[in-house]
Structure formats: structure tokens, C-alpha cells
Computed example of a mutant assay.
Amino acid sequence: MGLISIILVLMIFHGTKASNYDDRLSLNYYKESCPYTEEIVRREIEITLIREPRTAAQLLRLHFHDCFVMGCDASVLLDSTGEMISEKQAGPNLNSLRGFDVVDKIKSILEEACPNIVSCADLLAIAARDSVELRGGPYWKVKLGRRDSLIASFNGANQFIPKPNSSLETLISNFATQGLDEGDLVALSGSHTIGVSRCVSFKPRIYNGNIDDEYGYCKRNTVFRRILRSICPKSGRDNAVVPLDFVTFTKFDSEYYRNLIQGKGLLNSDNVLISQDEEGRIVRRVWAYALDQQLFFRSFASSMVKMGKINVITGDQGEVRRNCRVKNTL
């Protein structure tokens, strides 16, 4: 087994166990080396969101998909090479993950201001926070000091990123693998209050009566189902997109949870929070967030901080990439 293969195996294994590196990260990490880091990132995201509000969901999703594979190390941003398949090519990411061009632009500005200082992993963490707040969501302090991975994990992306047709049991297991609990699952699922999903991610469920019966999907919302079918015909238009939240899909709020209660969650992985929770703990959280947006905001911010610390690379491990798409050359 070659050296890169050995490292990859170790990092994938490491990625299955969440670790708390809070003591290695700092709120003032770039205070001396690049004091305007967060201001630069925020300014560029503000400009981007004026032109295209949906970018907020894309940047939030990039951070999520990054952290769930080997940890928050910007491995999701690496392009394929002759010896490595990019995570971008994995099933959960292919033709659906967006926002790379925005990250590239912000990184180029940071490199001009502070060459070889700010990591791509930290950039993703800041961008996710600012994207949420600028669409009406909560603010949280982001501790910094992450380093960037030297490799990506195509297999890890296929294995660890939750799928849109996941059962509740599978989702709980996926999150537990990352050191996240049921509370984090419910809070972070609220990220689906913004953004869109492709028809291919949920189409079988709006045409398969058996699955509808099992999960109660749209049974009392035939109008909603007709709308989805009009956008997503049984054949074709797999890549057409539908808002995850039909009510306020560009605003970060608690409408997502009210949708679930009304049977209007778009993905199976959304609806199972209601339909498959036999003990009622998760359902109670859904109701609580639906009724109290500020409670949701506090929980979401707390869970994002927790997720942002999954298996981070710090110190002499990893590197600070000059270009987020490729590892540095000597």
C-alpha cells in the first residue's frame, strides 16, 4: 500500500470519530497575521447574495459536506488528480454541490491581502456563518486556526454524508459517527429552510404510493403533491430544482419546522423527523422550533459551532492552501 493510500485510510478512520479541538482553535487566530479576514469574507458574501440569494444555502452546504468527511479540513474543495478522486465526484455532491467559484474569489482576495495565511477550511466556516446571518438567521462566533487537508476522500463522501432518502435511524447513526446527537440532527436539519433540491432527490416518493402510505408523505396535502409533480414529471427533468421551503426559501427562519408538521417537508430525510420518531423526543423538538424561532436560532448556532470542530487539522498538520482546489506544490 502506497503512502497516500495509508494516509487516506487513517484519515477516513479518524473521520469516523469526532474529536473536540476547541482548545486548538481561537477567536483571535488571525488578529496579528490577517486582522481583516472576517471583514473580507463578509463583504464578498454580501455582494454575492445581493446578486444571487441562493448562494447562502450553497456555502452552508459546502461547510456541512466538508465537515462530515474526515472533518472540517476543506477536503471537499480539492479537484481530482491523477492519484486522487475528488469528493466533488461522489454521489451526494455530483452535479449538486455549488459555490466553489465564490470560495475561489474570496480566497484570491485573502491571498492578495495576507498571502498563505488564511486556510480554506476557516474560510468555509466563516462563509457558512455569514451566509446564515445575512439571510436573517443567527450569528455565532467562529473559532479559527484550521489547516487544510492534503487529500480528499471520495469513498468517505459516499459513506458519511447523509442521503436525502435516509431513514431516521440512519440519520441518527450518521450524526453520531461525527459526535453529533439527536438535538444536533434536528437543529442542523433546519438548514433546509433555505436552498433547493433536485427532483431526482425526491421524485420516487411523489409517484410511489407505497412509500407515501408508509411515511404519510403528502397524504393530506394533495395540492402540494400536484405542485411537485408539475415541476418534476415522472420521466425527465431530474435536475430541475424545487425549494426546500416553499414559503420562505431565501430567508433563514423556522418555517421549515412548520412545513414538517403540515406534512410539507420535501425530502424523506426531512419528513422522517416526524414520521419515524416513535418515542417522540425529536417530534417535540420540531414543535418547539416551529413555535419559537429564537430557540431554533440558539440551537442551530450551538450545533454549527459543534460541527465546525469535527476532526479539525491544526498546527503543523495539513497546510494553508494558496488555491483551495489544489494542494500546494513545493
Rank of each mutant, 00 (worst) to 15 (best):
L188R: 02
L228T: 05
I261D: 05
D184R: 06
S19Y: 04
V132E: 07
K251T: 15
L228E: 03
R54G: 06
I50T: 10
C199L: 05
D270L: 14
E214C: 12
D270P: 09
S149I: 01
L124R: 03
R220W: 07
A290L: 01
N259Q: 14
E112N: 10
Y139A: 05
N95Y: 10
F64T: 02
S149T: 15
V132A: 11
D148F: 02
A187I: 07
R198L: 12
L144S: 14
L10A: 12
I126K: 00
L3S: 07
R281D: 11
R129A: 07
I151R: 00
Y289V: 11
G216I: 02
G190F: 07
V312R: 01
I50C: 08
R226W: 04
T222I: 11
L77P: 00
P53F: 03
S191H: 02
P92V: 06
I106D: 06
Y21F: 06
S299A: 11
E169F: 06
I310C: 03
L8F: 06
V241S: 07
D277C: 05
A121V: 13
A113T: 13
E279G: 03
P164C: 10
N155G: 10
E112A: 13
P233G: 05
N259D: 13
T193M: 09
G71W: 00
L27E: 09
F249Y: 14
G190Y: 11
I211N: 03
I117L: 13
R129W: 01
V69P: 00
T81L: 10
A176L: 09
K163A: 08
R135A: 11
M84W: 03
F64Q: 10
V132D: 00
L62E: 08
S96T: 13
A56D: 04
D316A: 04
M11D: 14
C120Q: 13
S149G: 01
I172T: 04
R146S: 00
F246E: 11
V312Y: 00
Y21R: 09
R226D: 10
R281H: 05
D148T: 05
V69D: 00
G2I: 12
I194T: 13
I4Q: 14
F13D: 11
R51K: 13
M1Q: 12
E279K: 10
Y257K: 08
P35S: 07
R284H: 08
S303Q: 12
D238F: 07
F300C: 04
Q89F: 09
G315D: 06
N165S: 10
N259M: 15
G183R: 11
T329F: 09
K107Q: 15
N311P: 08
P233L: 14
Y36R: 09
L144H: 13
A127F: 06
Y215N: 04
Y217V: 02
L150H: 10
A288P: 01
S254H: 08
E52N: 09
I85Q: 08
F224L: 03
G318K: 02
L228Y: 04
N20F: 05
D277Q: 12
E39L: 14
T250C: 10
Q178Y: 06
T222C: 10
C324F: 13
S26A: 08
M307C: 09
D122T: 08
F160Y: 10
P243N: 15
S299P: 03
R298P: 02
D184Q: 09
S275Y: 09
S86N: 07
N259W: 01
C34S: 07
L110V: 08
Y30H: 06
D104A: 15
E133V: 08
P92F: 01
E83D: 12
N95E: 06
Q294M: 03
R51L: 13
S235N: 12
R135E: 12
N28V: 12
